[in-house]
Amino acid sequence: MSAPNKSYDPVEVEALKPEEVERMRDEAIAAIAAAGDLDALREVKTAHTGDRSPLALANREIGALPPQAKAEAGKRVGQARGAVNQALKKRQEELEAERDARVLVEEAVDVTLPYDRRPAGARHPMTTFADRIADVFVALGYQVVEGPEVEAEWFNFDALNFPPDHPAREMQDTFFVRRDGQAKDEESGVVLRTHTSPSQIRSMIDREPPVYVICPGRVYRTDELDATHTPVFTQVELLAVDEGLTMADLKGTLDHMVQALFGEGMTTRLRPNFFPFTEPSAEMDMVCYVCRGESVGNPDRPCRTCSSEGWIELGGCGMVNPRVLRACGVDTDKYSGFAFGFGIERMLMFRHNIEDMRDIVEGDVRFTLPFGMEI
């Protein structure tokens, strides 16, 4: 930039001539008007209002003018730049309005169109019910544990006090996994677990008492698929090992479970039975959640759910056999425990009056959808 020169004639400064300033102004306004979108307008803005634009360069020449000429030249250039900025602002508003109107048309949503062309999904009731059972016991301080479905025979039978000649250890009841070089399947020592009790054994081995765990999972037995049986089903078992546990603690836990799952007023009863892994053992029944026992001896009010017996069998339970505790390294002089287990499919059938277990396992979406996301 040159220094002020009082003898310099401003008329000879080409960029500051009135007609030249008007030309630069008109070119800028015409370019702004021709901008077809906001991107093009940004390029025009840089070209005609930026530091290297013609009017900006002309404004720099004002400093070289004599004092008496600066005011007029500055006013002339300032008015031109103001007109350009005003045209730029107006054109930007116009283009933004056009863009917003176009977006409203191009991205409009027709709210009258059908919304359900893609059906809503639903969780399988088995999954939801298993989670609900787990929540009941997690709230009591139990831990949810899992174990392998292909299990060593020791965990599945021996540690649970099954004698070598027990019928459950035969191929007609259990799936054996053959190893390479084995002549017979039952010689492999590996089975598809027939219950989730091996997870209880692993829990007692891995943890120091007290132990409070719940073990849900798939189990396998050589049953034919029919209305009440399936070779693959879901079981949940509970184990508690602590000082001073008795059958009273077991009964209270069972009552709490059925009330949490089936409603207030539900109770359980225990009928003597035998299981190798519990002593004493019992079959666990709950009062019929439909008739609440009022159908017993009442021919005027029969109940299909419990066959008018007033009770529904759920599964087996009892105090953990001391032999099982000792097999897991638990001091039986100090600790005792209780356990129970039942099939979740059976509980689900009771809860929702499902008559055929095949409906649960065949994967027909028409069965799952009525349950939605919660049951």
Rank of each mutant, 00 (worst) to 15 (best):
S2W: 04
A3R: 13
Y8H: 11
Y8I: 09
E12Y: 06
L16D: 06
E19Y: 01
E19R: 11
E19M: 08
M24C: 11
I29H: 03
A30E: 10
I32Q: 06
D39T: 12
R42I: 09
E43A: 15
V44L: 03
H48F: 13
A58Q: 09
A58Y: 05
E61P: 02
I62K: 06
A64L: 01
L65Q: 01
A80F: 02
A83C: 04
K90C: 02
A101V: 04
L104Q: 11
D110E: 04
D110T: 02
T112S: 15
D116F: 08
R117I: 09
P119E: 11
A120E: 10
A122M: 05
A122V: 07
A122L: 08
A122F: 06
M126G: 05
D131F: 05
D131N: 12
A134R: 10
V136Y: 06
F137M: 10
Y142H: 09
V144L: 01
E149C: 06
V150A: 15
A152T: 12
F155A: 07
N161K: 09
P167Q: 04
E170A: 15
M171Y: 06
F175D: 06
V177P: 09
K184V: 07
H195P: 11
S197M: 08
S197D: 13
S199N: 15
Q200Y: 05
R202E: 14
I205V: 15
E208C: 08
I214V: 14
V219H: 01
V219D: 03
R221W: 05
T222G: 08
E224D: 15
E224L: 15
L225A: 14
T228I: 10
P231K: 00
Q235I: 03
V236G: 02
V236R: 07
L239Q: 08
V241F: 14
A248W: 00
G252R: 02
L261H: 00
T268D: 01
R269H: 09
N273R: 03
P276R: 00
P276G: 02
P280V: 11
A282Q: 08
M284T: 12
M284Y: 05
D285T: 10
R292P: 03
R292L: 07
R304F: 14
S307D: 13
G310I: 07
W311F: 03
I312F: 06
I312K: 05
L314S: 03
G315K: 08
G315M: 14
G318Y: 09
N321W: 02
N321E: 07
P322S: 09
P322Y: 04
L325G: 02
A327K: 06
A327E: 13
F340L: 06
F350W: 12
N353K: 10
N353H: 15
N353W: 02
D356G: 04
M357L: 15
D359L: 15
V361Y: 13
G372W: 05
M373P: 00
E374Y: 15
